[in-house]
């Protein structure tokens, strides 16, 4: 295994494109190292991107949007003084990934690129329309393209990234007035488990009425599911019982899960609806300005 520490994305791209075997990128390493230690994946080239300038920064841009460096850890996101005021659901979702120790290393991009359909931060990113900067070589050098977070994961262990693609930033949009996001997951214990069901909800209100909504499910299908019916169940409502029930029904209906060691089809389907309701209640309260 060759260990590389490029100090620019251009160099990282060059190394990745020159590599002929298995290539992995190292930021937090909380998945890569597990696979390495267990002899599941031993990369031929391991590219540590943490030496690249800016990868550790959380930047609040002039237009209100955020740029999160690819090596920013969950702990750094939680500790940021204002990020969680804008996007509490995203910060909480990332904070749910693993233990305190894992939080000290794990990153949004790692959570996304690991390819699991059960990552906690991914539904939260999709729900708030986050996008990903991807840098790769072109005929004239390198270029960076922007791809919706929703378009990265394509199936268990699979992403849409191709050879030489290096993720160079995460873009989080500016928060709209009277909006709120929330993420809830189900695990059998209180900590340290992979989500059996994950639900992210992002709402915008006018007065008491929901005018925009996005509901995203994790761990209940081969990939993340943006549930349009669930959003439609909420839009136009004041989150009354009927809307919540319709939301739950739509969320459960959107599930296409498997039976595995972490949960059953029946369980995942049922609990998706339960968590969708609970997440919507939190997001709604946040949109109303509650500090929850």
């Amino acid at each position: 295994m060759q260990y590389h520490t490029p100090d620019s994305f251009e160099d990282a791209v060059a190394i990745a494109n020159a590599a002929t075997g298995t290539t992995r990128f190292l930021a937090g390493g909380t998945d890569v190292l597990v696979q390495l230690r267990a002899d599941i994946v031993t990369p031929d080239d391991l590219i540590d991107i943490k030496h690249i300038a800016g990868t550790h920064d959380i930047t609040h841009n002039a237009d209100g949007s955020w740029t999160i460096g690819v090596a920013v850890t969950g702990a750094e996101m939680s500790e940021h003084p204002t990020l969680k005021n804008d996007w509490p659901g995203l910060v909480e979702a990332m904070d749910l990934v693993g233990s305190t120790q894992i939080q000290g290393r794990a990153t949004l991009v790692g959570n996304l690129c690991n390819g699991s359909p059960a990552a906690d931060s991914v539904p939260a990113m999709i729900a708030i329309n986050a996008s990903i900067d991807i840098t790769n070589a072109t005929d004239t050098g390198t270029a960076t393209r922007q791809v919706a977070a929703a378009d990265i994961h394509t199936g268990p262990g699979k992403t849409s990234l191709t050879k030489g693609d290096v993720i160079s930033a995460v873009n989080i949009p500016a928060v709209q007035p009277n909006s709120g996001d929330a993420y809830l997951r189900f695990i059998p214990r209180t900590e340290m488990d992979i989500a059996v069901v994950g639900v992210a909800v992002n709402l915008t209100l006018e007065g008491d009425t929901i005018t925009a909504a996005k509901v995203v499910l994790g761990a209940v299908a081969p990939s993340y599911v943006t549930v349009t019916d669930a959003a439609n169940a909420l839009i136009g409502s004041t989150l009354d019982e009927a809307a919540l029930d319709a939301l739950a029904t739509a969320a459960s209906a959107a599930c296409n899960p498997i039976d595995d060691k972490r949960g059953t089809i029946e369980f995942r389907t049922q609990v998706s609806g339960v968590l969708a309701k609970r997440a919507a209640v939190i997001a709604y309260a946040r949109a109303k300005g509650a500090n929850t």
């Binding site: 390493g29 597990v34 894992i102 290393r105």
Partner: peptide, 11 residues
């Protein structure tokens, strides 16, 4: 705070 099993010596 980190798990030293999830970090390379080289890092």
């Amino acid at each position: 705070l980190v798990c030293s099993c999830l970090m390379l010596g080289a890092e």
